[in-house]
Structures are given as C-alpha cells and as structure tokens.
C-alpha cells in the first residue's frame, strides 16, 4: 500500500502541493489528470525522492514505512518506481552497461548471462534493436524512444508501484502502441500503475477493469471517479469540470 496523507511541498518559497491525499493498492490502476502547473510532476518526483522535494509536510508511507529518510534507490527497493516525463540524456553512459548495473541491484540477476538475456528480451518488447543500447542514455533519442526506454526499465525492474509521468506525451503512434502494451503487461503482472496523463484517449488503449481517476488542481485532488470521469474531461475540458464541482 502506498498512502499519501496531507502532502505539502514547496519550492523556491512557493507552495506547489497543498495538503494532498492519495492512496494506491498493489495491483491497482490510477490515473492522475490535470492541467499544466497543477502539481502532477511535483507529486511524482516527491514520491520518487527528488532532492528538490525531500523536505515535505505530511506523510508518504510505502508498506507502512515513512519514505522521507529513504534515498531514491531505497524507494525503488521498496517497490516504487518513477518513469520520467523528461528522462535526461546522459552522454557516454551506455544503456547496456547501465541496465546491467541496474539489474545487478535486483534479485535473481546474479549471473551475467541472466542479465544479458533479460535486457535483450526487454529490448525486443519495446522495439529496440541491439544497436540503440550501445548508445549513451537517451543520447540522440526521440521522444518516443526516451519513453520506451523508461518502460523497458520498468519491465526489467517490475516494481510494485509504477508512476508514469506522461508516458504518452511527445511520442509517435507506434511508440504509443508499444507503451500501452507494456503498461497492460506490467499491470497484468500485478504492478500498480499510477498514470499521469493529459489525454483521456490514452486510457482507451488500456485494459481497464477498475480504474480510479483523480483530477488535480493547484496542488490538490479536487475530484475523483471512475473511467467515465476521464471521458467527461476529454469532452468538457478541465474548466467545466472545476465549475461543476465548485472547486473553481
């Protein structure tokens, strides 16, 4: 269980998250929507342990353990992973080498051969030929390739909770298909998905049994509902939703 209570985060003197409550169960599917600047990315980075937001108010508990003292790596070990909205380019750090190091820290990958096989099968699943893996992390990658590399890492790590910050923005149609497929795959294996998106459309590619949709505004969740809420947002836009809920 990931339980966020009354989360408050500020940056450069400005309050960004203002008393936010959220919880996610293992295996669940959660969608977070909201306009730019409503605090979605800050929320995801705070959960993952970004150094800019490590001094928060309220509490974030992962399996009943407060995460404030945990480094980003320790949070991953506890089962929480963030797929970045803007994964950075890190020149010279070859993807293959990096993934090997990542797997060395995971259970069940003690031998080189197991790591190589896992990397090659995850690469296939995300539409990478071997050659791209010999490049630096995100070096020369398109938006779609960057997002696919995030999902490829999620596939290797198999976290209990996967926050995906706009995996569907700035990408081509083929990448969107591969990414949706991976989200379904991971969800099917029991990973809880916390999907941050602008587009209600993205959901139509996902296998939705039960989904919780949360709408952000000014650092808070102002409305929650099922998949029909996403359709409503797609149809009416955020402003009308805010008007209707009186949280304008």
């Amino acid at each position: 269980m990931l339980r966020v209570e009354n989360l408050g985060v500020s940056s450069s003197g400005e309050d960004i998250l203002k008393g936010l409550d959220f919880q996610a169960e293992k295996g669940g599917l959660y969608v977070i929507m909201g306009p730019n600047g409503s605090g979605k990315s800050t929320f995801s980075k705070t959960l993952a342990g970004h150094p800019d937001y490590d001094d928060y108010d309220g509490s974030i508990k992962l399996n009943d353990r407060e995460v404030s003292a945990l480094s980003p790596g320790e949070r991953l070990e506890e089962g929480l992973m963030l797929g970045f909205q803007h994964p950075p380019k890190i020149e010279g750090v070859r993807i293959r080498r990096f993934l090997n190091d990542v797997l060395e820290n995971q259970n069940g990958y003690d031998n080189q051969k197991a790591r190589e096989e896992a990397i090659s099968s995850a690469a296939d699943a995300l539409g990478f030929s071997g050659a791209e893996l010999d490049r630096g992390i995100n070096d020369g990658f398109s938006g779609g390739e960057r997002k696919r590399l995030e999902l490829m890492q999620a596939r290797l790590i198999e976290p209990d909770y996967l926050i995906l910050d706009e995996p569907d923005s700035g990408i081509d149609v083929d990448s969107l298909d591969l990414i949706s497929e991976q989200i379904n795959y991971l969800h099917g294996r029991g990973t809880a998905i916390i999907l941050i998106t602008h587009y209600g459309d993205t959901l139509s590619n996902l296998k939705l049994n039960e989904v919780e949709v949360h709408v952000f505004k000014d650092g808070k969740i102002v409305k929650s509902g099922g998949s029909s809420l996403a359709d409503e947002i797609e149809e009416k836009g955020f402003n009308r939703i805010y008007e209707e809920c009186g949280c304008n």
Binding site: P72, E77, F84
Partner: peptide
C-alpha cells in the same frame, strides 16, 4: 547535473555508483 544523478539513483544505484557511472561516461 542533479537531474542525471537523480535519474540513475531512481533506478536503484546509490550515489557513489551513480557518480562513478557519470564520470566513466564522461571519460
């Protein structure tokens, strides 16, 4: 860059490992 370090650490590397990887990648 802090973003590079955070990225690598968020994938399970500790700070030393992440720093070493970036330095190796630079060289």
């Amino acid at each position: 860059k802090a973003e590079e370090l955070f990225y690598l650490m968020s994938r399970g590397l500790d700070e030393d490992e992440a720093t070493q990887l970036i330095v190796q990648g630079f060289i």
